[in-house]
Design a protein around this nucleic acid. Structure first.
Lengths: 131, 131
DNA sequence: ATTGCTGCAAACTCTTTGCATGAAG
DNA sequence: CTTCATGCAAAGAGTTTGCAGCAAT
């Protein structure tokens, strides 16, 4: 049976508290001050459990680091290829699309992800100044 | 200056010869018989160079392994969550979408990826037999 | 008391890199 | 010759795991 753990609660809350689609490391760094004995392994274990149970979703892997999202609604994402920033894009996918792909493939399509890539607003400005 | 290399040519050709969106390991295994002294490092180095030069595209990371595609046209992909198979889906993205996201974000959107996830035809059948 | 949760450190996997050697131009 | 390309082995980085002790029930 699953038992209560204050650290686990804090890990989920950490992801829910931000729109930055954080990585395990980010969560660890954020909670370390409050839980000085927190281990990175605990963060990884709990994140994996939350994804398993559907309370979190893995959005993408950016720079080899898995990024999580507590917003379970179907929406698109933008990933900056320079700074690795992941942000929401308010374009919602339709079940129709899944159905279309399902028929095309003869597969059981459960969901889809739409990811935009490019250079974010901030990085654009900074490179303007630099270049 | 870039020099000719038979191995490099073979690596690109290996990816071009299949629709399976292979990993570095797959390319290595495929070419090893013909090039017994081939090194995995060479495969990685050349794949990275091809992505850099735009001759190949990285489609996704499946089971921590990067998967490549020589088909540069904008099309969607389906990834089987059971066997890791990556297949093409004949749905083409529009530049309109990029423009839409670009305006939404104020970012320079270069492209987008549409990835479907679920259970492929083969795995569906096999689990029917098993379960 | 039972057994899940955690910290720690070691192990794992994929990928990258330093260096000496071999090959293309 | 010059310098890129390669093999090898070691290093890196993120993530996972075994185990003993702690903590929730």
């Amino acid at each position: 049976m699953k038992r209560y753990s204050r650290k686990r609660e804090a890990i989920l809350e950490a992801i829910r508290s931000t729109k930055s689609h954080p990585s395990a490391e980010w969560v660890y760094a954020k909670l370390k001050p409050e839980f000085p004995d927190l281990s990175l392994a605990t963060v990884y274990r709990n994140l994996a459990a939350f994804v398993e149970s559907g309370e979190l979703v893995s959005v993408a892997v950016v720079d080899s680091k898995e990024r999580y999202d507590a917003d379970l609604s179907s929406h698109a994402h933008f990933i900056c290829q320079q700074c690795g920033d992941v942000s929401d894009v308010d374009i919602h996918g339709s079940r129709e699309l899944d159905k279309l792909a399902s028929e095309y493939l003869g597969a059981k399509v459960e969901r889809h992800e739409l990811i935009f890539r490019g250079i974010c607003h901030n990085c654009c400005e900074n490179s303007d100044i630099a270049g």
